[in-house]
């Protein structure tokens, strides 16, 4: 009696399965692929097609006076123009500062808050709720509030500085090319550190208590327990949190756009605001697409590390 072809790789001898090529493996797992086919179809439509169209559009010149049907093929001109422009280097530098500083400070602050909240103390639940407030406030609303807090003529911070004698005139935060970007980073860190706090808090709650107690019995100090027990146990969570913050920051649009529009004189212009400005302020969809493709390539690299980080978490025993 003929036997049906195995549809699940688990039923096959693992050694033989490993010898099969990709197509053969896929054929053996065809039922699994059928199950995920609808999802793949949706992903192709809502993710794949826009990516394809953006890449396609990046090779065209689309001046504001022409409709999209009249676009002209420009080859790699859009890419060479972007890479050769001094504005690109300036924006890339701003993006680097914005992304690394926001990620670093949001993570450090979030981790610190998580460590505090992981301990029992009176009012812990209330404190946790209060610390989550920046995270749940709409980014647009928060940006407007901060814009007024920072306002160079009537801002609360400027008025406080004058009142306390730190300055004769209100401080110039957002209208200064030196302070605009750092001021926005402060707002961004305030807005997203609770995200890091939540992830790290969840991670901290998985650290086995007996390990910490054993370390205490062995005479480890608080710092040693943190560095040699807690941190190694949280490596996976830390990696994922940092990567998520990084991706979130490199793509962050609302705070810089609402608060300064990338100004003054491009001092707080980052990749994503620059892409928006090129596409919708200057109506250059081809150029904006080329910019987006460059950003996408960077994101792919980060995505690769993210997947590796996830795999790292999976491979670790007891993870």
């Amino acid at each position: 009696m003929a036997t049906a072809a195995p549809v699940n790789a688990n039923r096959v001898d693992p050694r033989r399965y490993r010898e099969l090529n990709v197509l053969q493996r896929m054929y053996r797992c065809r039922a699994d692929y059928l199950y995920v086919l609808p999802s793949l179809g949706v992903m192709f439509l809502v993710i794949g097609y826009p990516i394809y169209y953006t890449v396609y559009l990046s090779f065209f010149n689309t001046p504001p006076s022409l409709s999209m049907d009249e676009k002209s093929f420009a080859g790699i001109e859009n890419y060479s123009r972007i890479l050769a422009s001094s504005r690109f280097h300036e924006v890339t530098w701003n993006t680097t500062i914005w992304t690394f500083a926001s990620t670093f400070f949001a993570f450090v602050l979030g981790f610190g808050a998580a460590l505090v909240l992981n301990r029992e103390f009176p009012g812990r639940a209330v404190t946790r709720g209060v610390l989550l407030v920046p995270f749940v406030i709409s980014a647009v609303a928060a940006s407007y509030v901060w814009r007024w807090i920072y306002h160079s003529d009537f801002g609360v911070l400027g008025a406080l500085a004058v009142q306390m004698g730190f300055s004769d005139t209100p401080l110039n935060f957002l209208d200064s090319i030196d302070y605009a970007l750092p001021s926005l980073i402060v707002v961004n860190v305030w807005k997203e550190f609770p995200f890091a706090m939540l992830l790290m808090l969840a991670g901290l709650q998985t650290v086995p208590d007996q390990l910490l107690r054993a370390a205490t019995v062995d005479g480890a100090s608080v710092w040693q327990r943190f560095w040699h027990v807690t941190v190694p146990h949280l490596k996976g969570v830390i990696l994922i949190t940092v990567l998520l913050l990084f991706v979130q920051n490199i793509n962050h649009f609302t705070i810089p756009w609402v608060m300064t529009g990338g100004g003054p004189a491009g001092a707080s212009d980052i990749w994503i605001t620059q892409i928006y400005q090129i596409a919708f302020g200057r109506i250059r969809f081809g150029l904006a697409s080329a910019y987006s493709v460059i950003l996408f390539a960077v994101m792919i690299v980060i995505g690769y590390f993210y997947v590796k980080a996830l795999a790292f978490g999976d491979e670790r025993p007891n993870a």
């Binding site: 504001p64 006076s65 090319i177 100004g263 003054p264 491009g266 109506i283």
Partner: peptide, 24 residues
């Protein structure tokens, strides 16, 4: 009255002012 007016007026002119006023 040209399609490029929006970019000239809303982007290039303010950028020019900001470049000068910030002493960039």
């Amino acid at each position: 009255v040209i399609p490029e007016s929006t970019e000239i007026m809303n982007v290039i002119v303010p950028d020019m002012l900001q470049n000068a006023l910030t002493e960039k």
